[in-house]
Amino acid sequence: MRRILTAFALLAALLVAPAAPAAAAVTPVQVYGAWHCGNDFCTWGTTRTVAEFDTQNHWLIDRGDGRPSVNVVVLSFVDPAKLLHLTDDATTVDGIPRGITPEIVGYFTSRGIRVMLSIGGITYTDAWNAALAENAAQFGRNAADAARRLGVGIEIDYEENTSPNLTGLQAFIDAYRAVLPYDATGANPAARLTIDVAAGDRWLIALNRKATADWLRTDRPVLDYANAMVPARPASASSAVADWQEHIDGKSNYSPPVPPLAPAKFTAGLYVAYGNRPLPECTDYATSLQRATGTFVQSAAPNGAGTTAGLLGYMFWAAERPSTRGIGTVPPNTCQGGTGAGATAYQIQIPMPALRQS
C-alpha cells in the first residue's frame, strides 16, 4: 500500500509541476558575408586580373575544403556623384570604379557567392548629399542600371548623421524600385537593395528612424534588409549584443520615437580586420565574436516588429585592404580559420537561400 501511495504521490507531483521553459527558437544564419575594400583602401580604382586577385582573396572562395567562406560580398565603395554623372576618368568607367569588373564579379558569382556594390561610405557623405540634391531619381535609375549590367545588388551606405536628405533618398529608392521591384525570392540579384545603419540606435538616428518606419517593414517591405555596421572599434560580445538589441527594441523615448525593427530585417556587423594583429573573427572561430554572440543572433526574439526569432546573420568588415594602416586579410593573415570555420559551424547555405520576411 505504501508503494502504491508513493507512486500516486510521484504521479501527482509530475502532473502539477510547472513545465520546463521552452528552449529559445534557433534560426539558421542566412546572411554570412564580407564587405570588400579591394587592394586600394576601398576605392577599387585599378583594373586587376582574376589571377592576381585570387592570390590575395582565395580564402573567400575556399575555407580550406573547397567551399566558400561567405555567401555574399559587398564591393565597397562607389562614389555617388560619379555614379550620378556616369563619370569616365582614370579610376572610373560609367560611374563604377575600374576595379569592379564583370570578371571580378564573376569570380564570386561563379561559386555561388552573391555580389553587391556599396554606394557611399563615410568618405563619400558629401557626395551622397550632392547627388541627392542634384537629381535623386536619376541617381537611383543609374544605380539600377549598373546593378542590372553587372548582375549585382546595391547597398545604400549614406552616413549623414545630422540632417540626411531623406526626401532625396526616398526619390532614389523609388526610382530604383521602379526599375527593379522588390523580390522576396532573391532570384534577381539586381533587385536586392539594402541599407546600412549604425551599430545601435544612437547614431544616424534620423536615417535609422526613416528606414525602420518606412522601408524595412515586414508588411510592405521596400528594402530587403539593413546591416548594423561595426562600431568605431571592435567591441566585446556584450557590447555588440546591446547595440543590436537597440534595433529590436527601438527607442520609444526619442522624439519622434524610433520604432522596433524585426530581427529578420537586419544583420550584425563585426570586424575581421583592425589594427596590426589578426582578429579571432578572421583567424580563430573558437574565440571569435561570431561564436560568442551566436546564440543571440540565432534566437533574439522580436519586440514589437516581426514574427520570427533571430537576426539574418553576420557581415564582416572588411576583406583585403580596408585601411592604409593595419594588416588587412591578405596572406598570411587570411580568414579560413575564423570566418571560414564559422561558415562551417553555422552550416551556411551557398548560394544564399530566400530570406525570411518576418
Rank of each mutant, 00 (worst) to 15 (best):
G250Q: 11
Y124T: 12
P21C: 01
P257D: 14
T307I: 05
A137V: 04
G310Q: 06
D54C: 00
M315K: 03
E103T: 12
I113Q: 15
V16I: 13
L5T: 10
D89Y: 09
F316I: 05
G200C: 09
P332D: 08
M1H: 12
L223T: 08
P97A: 04
R114Y: 10
V78M: 09
M1C: 09
S118T: 14
T91V: 08
A240Q: 11
V74F: 07
T43V: 02
L75E: 02
Y274W: 05
D62Y: 01
N165F: 03
R177M: 14
L261Q: 05
T267D: 09
K210Q: 15
D249Q: 15
T324C: 01
V72T: 14
F296W: 13
G66D: 11
S238H: 13
Q245R: 15
L204N: 03
V105I: 12
A81P: 02
L180A: 13
Y254W: 12
N71C: 05
Q290A: 02
T307V: 02
G151F: 02
A199G: 07
K265D: 02
D249R: 15
I122N: 15
F316P: 05
P181N: 14
S236C: 13
G120K: 13
T339M: 12
D54E: 07
A286V: 08
V197E: 10
T91E: 12
A136Y: 01
L204V: 04
P18M: 03
A191K: 06
P351C: 06
P68R: 00
A345Q: 10
G106A: 09
V31T: 05
G186V: 12
A20T: 07
I195H: 02
L11F: 00
A187N: 15
P231E: 05
A90N: 12
T194K: 08
D196K: 10
K251E: 15
A143W: 06
D201V: 12
W44L: 03
L204G: 09
T109L: 02
I122P: 03
L14H: 01
A211N: 07
V26M: 06
W59E: 08
R325C: 01
L207N: 04
D79F: 00
G304H: 11
R148L: 11
S323R: 04
G168F: 08
D54N: 11
G33N: 06
R48K: 07
R325F: 08
N142P: 13
W44R: 01
L60P: 04
Q298F: 02
V31Y: 03
Y107I: 11
P263I: 07
T49D: 03
V50T: 14
C335L: 08
G95M: 14
D94S: 11
L11R: 03
G200R: 10
A262S: 06
C282P: 07
D243I: 01
D40K: 00
Y314D: 01
G326Y: 09
V26E: 10
P302C: 01
N303T: 01
Y107M: 04
L223V: 13
A300P: 03
W35C: 05
N142F: 14
T49M: 00
T125V: 09
I4F: 04
G140E: 07
M116V: 06
G33R: 05
A286Y: 05
T87F: 02
A23G: 04
